[in-house]
Amino acid sequence: METKLYTITIFSENTVGLLGQITIIFTRRSINIETLSVSPSAIKGIHKFTITLFATEDIVSKVVKQIDKRIDILKAYYNTDEDLVFQEIALYKVATEKLLEKGSIEDLVRKYHIRILEMNNDFVVLQKAGHYNETQQMFEELSGSIGVLQFIRSGRVAITRSKVERLSDMLNAIQEKYGENN
Rank of each mutant, 00 (worst) to 15 (best):
M1L: 12
T3P: 15
L5N: 15
L5Q: 11
T9F: 05
I10Y: 08
F11L: 14
F11G: 09
G17W: 10
G17T: 07
L19G: 00
G20F: 14
I22Y: 10
I24R: 11
I25C: 05
I25K: 11
I25P: 06
R29A: 03
S30V: 08
S30P: 03
S30M: 10
I31H: 04
N32E: 09
N32R: 09
S37K: 04
V38C: 15
S41H: 05
I43G: 09
G45K: 14
I46A: 02
I46R: 03
I46T: 08
H47W: 10
K48H: 07
F49V: 06
T50S: 06
T52R: 08
L53K: 03
A55R: 02
A55N: 13
A55I: 06
E57L: 09
V60S: 07
V63S: 06
Q66G: 00
K69L: 15
K69G: 01
R70H: 13
R70T: 12
I71R: 14
D72T: 14
L74P: 00
L74A: 00
A76F: 13
A76G: 12
A76D: 08
Y77A: 03
Y78L: 14
E82A: 15
D83C: 03
L84E: 05
V85P: 01
E88Y: 06
E88F: 01
Y92P: 09
A95K: 15
L99C: 07
E101R: 12
E101A: 06
G103H: 13
I105H: 02
L108T: 01
R110Y: 04
R115C: 07
L117I: 10
M119E: 02
M119R: 04
F123V: 02
V125W: 04
V125Q: 01
L126M: 15
L126R: 04
Q127C: 01
Q127W: 02
K128F: 06
E134F: 02
E134A: 05
T135I: 15
Q136E: 10
M138P: 05
F139W: 07
F139I: 09
E140N: 12
E141M: 12
L142I: 12
I146D: 03
G147V: 08
F151S: 05
F151K: 00
I152V: 15
I152S: 10
R156A: 09
V157A: 11
I159A: 03
R161F: 04
K163Q: 12
K163H: 09
E165Y: 04
R166Y: 12
R166L: 12
A173L: 15
A173E: 13
I174C: 07
E176Q: 08
E176Y: 05
Y178S: 00
E180P: 01
N181Q: 11
